[in-house]
Amino acid sequence: MIKLTINGQTVTAEDGMSILDAALAHGIEIPALCHDPDLKPESSCRLCLVEVDGRPWPRVACGTPVKDGMVVETNTPEIRATRREILQLLLDNHPNDCLTCQKAGECLLQKYAYEYGVTFRTHNGARRGGEKARFTDTSSPYILRDESKCILCGKCVSTCAELNERSVLSFAGRGFETKVAADRDETLEASTCVSCSRCVAVCPVGALIDRRVREKKIRPWEADRQTIQCKACEYGCEYEVLKKGDERVIRPLSPSGGRPLCLKGRLFVEAEVSSDLRTPYKKEETEKGRKFVRTTWIEALELDGILDRITCNETDSGK
């Protein structure tokens, strides 16, 4: 165990731990947009900068391992000023859409902008995704993408790459023109995306949205929330049930602890708890490339054949 001081408080941490994790373990929150406990640190958002041992150059808390006797300050005026500048840079490239954004209430950019008092402002500079929020990829019945809101934290890319056979998302372009692309910059429909929604579960802003939740117009803070496990396989991936009035929708939760998330599991959970069963879609290879096609619930859950046998069997046995 290692002893260090964070904001004057002596804390213990395990060797190899990052400053960010050590701080979190003691209830000290350091703002971070690209950090995810299940993913390797990208250190790309730069919000988690902290002062280490009084040195003038701040370090990223997510990528700096703790050392014995380290003195960390997470909230100096200089650090806060730098964070404000970073947030301002992000807001200058982000549409002012919090009123209607599905992510409102749990958006990390919104949360930190509020905490640091940074606001949208008009400017005549370039904007990566245009001034207005709009879904730039509506090809998937499960996932909506809005590139104008993307802050390029890279969590979606990392989580997609955690499973080798998926690895659909990657960065494309460079500098200000950097974007997240599916395969060779295709739509989610045309790409090899399997609609597992891992990316949606980790996106800190409104760039990746669960389409079915949005269509029900339920935002998390106004819903009763309950976590349930998928029973489709032994991983037991976690889903959240959002209940508002008579409406119930589900959404995948963060794929932590090696849980993969998959479309079949999602549909399983949907079939189990959703207030209404909406048409399931399957991706098929056609002459015109990959297409989402309507399917039946029995086919989507791969129950055809089995269901007949069960029905037969139960009829035979006289039940």
């Binding site: 990208e42 250190s43 790309s44 958002c45 730069r46 919000l47 500048e85 970073i86 840079l89 992000l90 200058d92 490239n93 500079g125 370039a126 802050i151 390029l152 890279g154 960065f171 372009g173 460079r174 500098g175 200000f176 023109e177 950097t178």
Partner: peptide, 12 residues
Amino acid sequence: CGKCTPCREGTK
């Protein structure tokens, strides 16, 4: 390269 916020947005 576009990876980190300050360089990607700030240089622009």
